[in-house]
């Protein structure tokens, strides 16, 4: 048993924006090096909040009320800002959700792809450019020279997401946080991007936290998975075990509902209201205890 790369223990947080409403309720999860871990749950379940806690970019309006986020034995929540800055963008990187807004519209790709390499790895301009070209080839971009000289609006959404994936893997991170990286893309492009992330992750032996609301995506890409509801872990385990032998009624209902469980009108069998009532009851009980 290798020691975990990332270990979240009993992480709790509240939203000061919404009358100290709990956002995370004693969330725990472990991530081994090179593992792809899915964070699943409906919108508002707290997936992005966990991702932000790992990246050290929690909004000011979210207050951590307990727990720890350990990355290789360093607690990211109590680390001095300087030490945190050294980890972020180098050992832990981010693939953002929306490739439309994650690239600066007025800068060429070259600068955006190389300034991390120059700032973080101290590469020269020429070395960073060579590295960027190699990375673009690795994410299967044809004509990388032209892409480096392009502005974001000259590229398709899929191309942009490939560039962002290249940027995330560029500094050789140990952990990549991907927050719904395919949600904003067409279905056909989605599949390619999923495969690409999986391939890059294997090639570089990088651990990935993969945030999604789609159990189908989890089945394709994740080794293990944590299912959240209202900031609480409902069920966790290996993907195979959870999808084949779901323990919790909510998990079973989600699997039955199909890929669009998040939109009752489009799902095969909507999650029954009784299950949500039960979930809320359980959460209230643990709160009181």
């Amino acid at each position: 048993m290798t020691s975990p790369l990332l270990s979240i223990k009993a992480l709790s947080a509240v939203s000061t924006r919404e009358a100290h409403q709990p956002v995370l309720r004693a969330v725990s999860l472990d991530l081994r090096p090179g593992e792809v871990h899915g964070l699943v749950g409906e919108s508002g379940a707290g997936k992005s909040t966990i991702a932000k806690a790992v990246l050290g970019i929690l909004p000011r309006t979210v207050k951590v009320t307990g727990g720890s986020v350990r990355f290789e034995e360093r607690d990211l929540l109590t680390l001095p800002p300087r030490a945190l800055r050294d980890i972020m963008g180098r050992e832990i990187t981010l693939i953002p959700q929306d490739p439309q807004t994650a690239l600066n519209p007025s800068r060429r790709i070259e600068g955006q792809l190389t300034d991390g390499l120059r700032l973080r790895l101290g590469l020269s301009a020429a070395a960073a450019r060579a590295r960027a070209l190699a990375l673009l080839e690795e994410v299967q971009i044809r004509d990388p020279e032209r892409v480096l000289a392009s502005y974001p609006h000259q590229l398709s959404g899929g191309m942009r997401q490939r560039i962002l994936i290249a940027a995330a893997f560029a500094p050789g991170p140990k952990l990549v946080v991907a927050d719904e990286p395919t949600t904003a893309l067409d279905v056909t492009v989605q599949k390619e991007i999923l495969r690409l992330i999986r391939r890059m992750q294997r090639a570089h032996d990088t651990a990935v936290i993969f945030v999604t609301h789609d159990l189908g995506v989890v089945a394709k890409i994740c080794d293990s998975v944590t299912l959240l509801y209202a900031g609480k872990v409902i069920e966790a385990g290996t993907t195979a075990a959870m999808l084949e032998r779901p323990a919790h009624p909510y998990t079973r209902a989600l699997i039955a509902a199909g890929p669009r469980y998040d939109r009752p009108e489009a799902s095969l069998t909507p999650v029954p209201d009784a299950i949500f009532r039960q979930l809320r009851q359980d959460i209230e009980q643990t709160e009181r205890a």
Binding site: L55, I57, R85, M88, G89, R90, T93, L94, P96, Q97, D98, T101, A102, L103, N104, Q112, D115, G116, L119, R120, L164, A167
Partner: peptide, 13 residues
């Protein structure tokens, strides 16, 4: 507040 600024900040800018 845009994502590209967040990414640049993570890169240590």
């Amino acid at each position: 507040g845009q994502d590209y600024v967040l990414l640049a900040r993570l890169k240590g800018m």
